[in-house]
């Protein structure tokens, strides 16, 4: 049996093989599907019915305000699978199997981050439908709305690479899960995702205004047309130019973490 010499494009075909692996995993592990579909629905319902009456957004409806925040929070959490999954693969030793195969060293990571992308895309569809059902409306064009979805998914995709790197460095799926909750909950809550930042105490307000999650939320809000005209926008560059900020963020994260991940992957071994 002869083995073909892998061409320069082997990362593409190998990446496809490993993506299939992760797609099968999504089908077989019900937890993932439940988490990615039911949790966003729950968030949308809780926020739009529990908080909507108590939080007043000038010139807007809280349901309209909150959706971009829930989208951003969900996709950022959705990217953490890559961290725990890489750690799990290391623990189970399957990384050693991959590393002794004549495959592209980036393929496992490509497949893994594609898996997150797929999960997040599923979540986005579910959330958009639920949002529309509870009264959220897209007040921009279809193109802008699609751009908003693309931006959210791309940012989360880039963040998956960061998590994959952390997963390979920390090596414990449990630690990854706990730490990402500890870091990401404050990061998503101390932002403009669920409340306007101007009412926050000063230290939190400053943090929230520079928080990249705030930029992501603001970008999505603008693109969905959920920022009523005349709403004050904090006077930081990232809040004034949220779409550009996120685009730069995506490029920078990928430029740093894709090579870092591939380098790391080529050296790691279970145990």
């Amino acid at each position: 049996m002869s083995v073909d010499v892998p061409g320069a494009s082997s990362w593409l075909s190998d990446g496809w093989v490993t993506t299939r692996r992760n797609v099968i995993k999504i089908k077989r592990v019900p937890d993932i599907l439940v988490f990615t579909t039911l949790q966003p629905i729950m968030f949308v319902l809780l926020f739009s019915y529990v908080y909507a009456g108590s939080i007043d957004i000038p010139g807007s409806d809280y349901k309209e305000f909150i959706m971009a925040g829930i989208f951003a929070q969900t996709v950022v959490f959705g990217s953490t699978y890559s961290g725990s999954a890489m750690a799990q693969d290391l623990k189970e030793g399957i990384i050693d199997r991959f590393r002794t195969l004549p495959m592209s060293p980036s393929a496992v990571l490509i497949g893994r981050t594609n898996g997150d992308l797929l999960i997040n895309a599923l979540s986005m569809i579910v959330m958009i439908l639920t949002g529309l059902a509870v009264g959220w409306r897209i007040r921009s064009s279809v193109v802008e709305a699609l751009a908003a979805v693309a931006l959210l998914l791309l940012f989360a995709y880039a963040f998956s690479w960061v998590m994959a790197f952390i997963g390979m460095s920390v090596r414990s799926p449990e630690v990854i899960n706990n730490v990402s909750f500890l870091v990401l909950f404050p990061l998503t809550f101390i932002s403009n995702a669920f409340v306007p930042t101007e009412n926050l105490p000063t230290p939190l307000r400053v943090f929230a205004e520079y928080n990249p999650v705030s930029a992501l939320v603001q970008a999505a809000r603008e693109l969905f047309g959920n920022v009523p005209p005349g709403t004050p926008v904090p006077d930081t560059w990232t809040q004034q130019n949220p779409v550009l900020t996120i685009l730069i963020g995506i490029v920078v994260l990928l430029a740093i973490f894709v090579p870092l991940c591939v380098r790391k992957f080529a050296r790691i071994s279970s145990r």
Partner: peptide, 25 residues
């Protein structure tokens, strides 16, 4: 290796099929 390095969520067949594809068969 010393520890079974296979993907738990894939079937036996899918594991071997994946390895074959990654050998570019």
């Amino acid at each position: 290796g010393q520890y079974a390095a296979v993907d738990e969520n894939l079937t036996g067949f899918e594991n071997l099929d994946m390895v074959g594809r990654l050998y570019h068969l």
